[in-house]
Write a protein that binds this DNA or RNA. Sequence first.
DNA 1: ATATTAAGTGAGTAATTACTTATTATTTAG
DNA 2: CTAAATAATAAGTAATTACTCACTTAATAT
Lengths: 173, 173
Amino acid sequence: MTEKQQSIVNSALKLFADKGFDAVPTSAIAKDAGVSEGLIFRHFQNKVGLLNAIMQMGKEKIADNVSEILALNTPEARVTAIMEIPFYIAEEDYPFWKLVYSLKWQNDYYDDEMSKPMKDILISALVEMKYIDAESEADLILSYLDGFATTILLKGEVVDKNKLLQTLRKKYK
Amino acid sequence: MTEKQQSIVNSALKLFADKGFDAVPTSAIAKDAGVSEGLIFRHFQNKVGLLNAIMQMGKEKIADNVSEILALNTPEARVTAIMEIPFYIAEEDYPFWKLVYSLKWQNDYYDDEMSKPMKDILISALVEMKYIDAESEADLILSYLDGFATTILLKGEVVDKNKLLQTLRKKYK
DNA sequence: ATATTAAGTGAGTAATTACTTATTATTTAG
DNA sequence: CTAAATAATAAGTAATTACTCACTTAATAT
């Protein structure tokens, strides 16, 4: 990855997250990145190729999180760790997650694989915890997750994250 | 509203919900609606005007829901009614809600007013129920709401809605 | 009946879009 | 040190886009 390649990825991620993939022309990306428009196509073939490269890089980061959670000893610890993920998304990762969530709603580019590993961990942890219907419970928790992520990513500073997290923990004691 | 006007709105809503506002050209809307492209601009001024008209119509429908919930006697009934909203979205309203949720992620068109009335009802109900921190609790519930709506609208038939609803109710007894 | 307004069309248009190509600068390898 | 490979650019291009305009058709009011 050259410096300019990285610059393209950074700008594209920022703009895609902000305005949506389809609303951002490659000319705007090039301008923001301070490179010629042609360079985008030299390195990423086409606009979707650029999107895929961004998603790929994000997925690799996620893989790290997954293995961290898997390293936790008890199934309880693993479940709560997953439930609290949205509260600990680093500010620098906001654009990536915003992009992921915005793409969910656009038929053409949606990639379902994203939440699959989390669901697998959840189910096996819940089975270990003797839940009767582990899959429904996992779906419930994943729904919560989507909701918290949405609130935190969109409302940002408007909502008091700590208070929200406290309220959630009280409920799940 | 003439027949063709309605046809334009129907096609636009369907396509916007499916592919995202920016990904749908007015030419595609006209084609799908079986009208000339010019007619869109005659009736709605511009593409954003068409979007606004769709949102306005949706908001009026929501207003009906809000007054139905307000009519419930106990605060408990009002809170649970709100929490279960996503499970009772009519199939025909899916496109509208998909559009609302997809627009949330696009800086330019997002309209926050949508969830405001629901939050107000929630807070006053929770205050009535003597909750210490009604606003945090309301934010928590609204986060759930977003999560359930996301799951139901996107996964559709993949997730067992009834089982999920059951699991939710058990948790909130 | 006729005049006025509104609904609807179809062929434009200027600007923008994703992408290409010919060319030049910069690395890297032997 | 030089040649081959790669990085980068600038100036295109064909297709598409949102929107306009001159016009025809249908509805409504007097």
